[in-house]
Design a protein around this nucleic acid. Structure first.
Lengths: 133, 133
DNA sequence: ATAATTGCAAATTTTTTGCAGGTTC
DNA sequence: GAACCTGCAAAAAATTTGCAATTAT
């Protein structure tokens, strides 16, 4: 995704430079928290305020452009909205990698008497790099 | 679990009335956030302070007595530490139900090049009650 | 007896709000 | 041009800290 303007308009939001900058930051990072977005975005737009980021993070969530990824013991991160997927969170380097939900996993999550609408799966462990250290 | 004193001591924490009260509140609720613990606990111990709750929530997490359950768009909840399990979060009534991770699910979560140590699975949808409304 | 814990008040950090001026469509 | 958005500063909410008095072992 590189056309943030289209993404915003498709979701009934005006395309301001502040919003496209925030989206670019989120997209590049993959998963990023508000403070890091702020730091990031200020390089190109030094006047972009934290209040604007807070307001837009809320708004863009409401408009299904981004999604919150709540984290254990730290501030929530945000990612661009996409199909449900699994987060592989490395306890060594902290990196978050995305991986698809397989058919097999999907089937395994069918639970009696619960009508599933979406899933949020975080797996903690060690990525390849950190295993070999 | 009803013997909170033992639970604390086993994990190298002194058994204070404040701590057992907090644990009781968490245990009864199943999943509960800090403000609700505070409200709860004050019924029996009106002087128990919010600062004490914050301090102990951190400490009891460090000592593996409780676990954070970060939530989308709201304050984290906490639960007693137990084996990994799945949270069924009802989008109708908000209730969180626990369900075991089956052998099948466990197998489905084996991912190449990732050494799994723990999992955090939240499923959003509708519980039986809310489906029939 | 000792070390740890509590409650309070104050400090800090995080998030939200109101509004005048500027921007998007 | 109308409605919406931004940045600022101020307000509110959430969390942490320091310390004297108290409590658990």
């Amino acid at each position: 995704m590189t056309d943030y303007i289209t993404l915003l308009k498709e979701n009934d939001l005006k395309a301001t430079i502040q919003r496209t900058s925030i989206l670019k930051s989120i997209d590049h990072a993959g998963h990023i928290n508000i403070d890091d977005i702020y730091e990031d975005v200020r390089e190109l737009h030094p006047t972009l305020s934290l209040a604007t980021i807070y307001k837009n993070i809320i708004l863009m969530q409401e408009h299904n452009v981004i999604v919150e990824v709540p984290m254990n013991g730290e501030k929530s991160k945000f990612e661009l909205k996409k199909d449900d997927h699994i987060h592989l969170i490395c306890q060594g380097c902290g990196e978050i990698q995305d991986t698809d939900i397989t058919q097999k996993t999907q089937e395994a999550l069918v639970i009696e008497n619960f009508q599933l609408s979406s899933s949020q799966i975080n797996l903690y462990g060690f990525c390849q790099k950190c295993q070999s250290r």
